[in-house]
């Protein structure tokens, strides 16, 4: 995803002597080969119900993630909920993640589904570019996603097409900006103590 150099956060001179440390950040390597347990059958079943549904399938930390293109999302969600072999009837959570480094797929929406019938959990992830932040709404499939999508719009500025009432939910209605995005500053004020000033936490130099 990106390459990091040195120990200190950007914007300040790295005086640590570790400037030649280079670390590559790789997010979500696609899984190769069979996954075992129920994971393969769910993946294959979705692939038969929806044509070409995956950008990639990731299996990390014992959790299965389907990266689904946004064009297929609504269709895939219907299938995941209604198909007798899938039956992910419960949408626990929708949230966003902002990866400003990932060109063309900066904004991710993460859905956590739960099958109570089969006692399985699944993560569905979809991405959209910052320039065109549109993702189809899944409220028609999962009414539980209603407020979660409003929160994701509020915090990340992702527009959920087809959402019945996409308004701000946590921030005041006239707020400018979407606070959880990485380009939005944390805010805060300098703290003065005993005559010296400590800058707000997002302006301090810190370890990566």
């Amino acid at each position: 995803m990106s390459v990091r150099r040195g120990m200190w956060s950007a914007g300040t001179g790295d005086t640590s002597g570790y400037g030649r440390i280079v670390r590559e950040v790789v997010v979500a390597t696609p899984a190769a080969g069979p996954l075992g347990s129920w994971y393969d059958s769910v993946r294959d079943r979705l692939a038969t119900l929806v044509a070409d549904p995956f950008v990639k399938v990731v299996f990390e930390y014992g959790e299965l993630t389907f990266h689904i293109p946004r064009e297929k999302l609504a269709e895939a969600m219907w299938a995941l909920r209604d198909d007798a072999l899938l039956r992910f009837e419960f949408c626990a959570s929708v949230s966003g993640v902002h990866y400003p480094q990932a060109a063309g797929a900066e904004l991710h929406v993460v859905y956590h589904l739960q099958s109570m019938t089969h006692n399985r959990r699944l993560r569905v992830e979809t991405a959209c570019p910052d320039a065109d932040p549109h993702v189809p709404s899944v409220v028609a499939t999962y009414p539980a996603a209603d407020w979660h999508e409003r929160e994701t719009w509020d915090m990340f500025g992702i527009i959920f097409d087809g959402h019945p009432h996409l308004t701000r939910i946590l921030m005041p209605d006239d707020w400018v900006g979407h606070p959880q995005r990485k380009d939005y500053p944390l805010g805060g004020i300098p703290i003065e103590y005993k005559g010296t000033t400590v800058p707000p936490v997002d302006e301090r130099r810190s370890y990566r």
């Binding site: 921030m171 606070p179 939005y184 500053p185 944390l186 805010g187 805060g188 004020i189 703290i191 707000p200 936490v201």
Partner: peptide, 12 residues
């Protein structure tokens, strides 16, 4: 004083 929440959401 705003306490530990020195951020965009909280009045300090």
């Amino acid at each position: 004083s705003g306490g530990m929440f020195n951020n965009y959401a909280i009045v300090q």
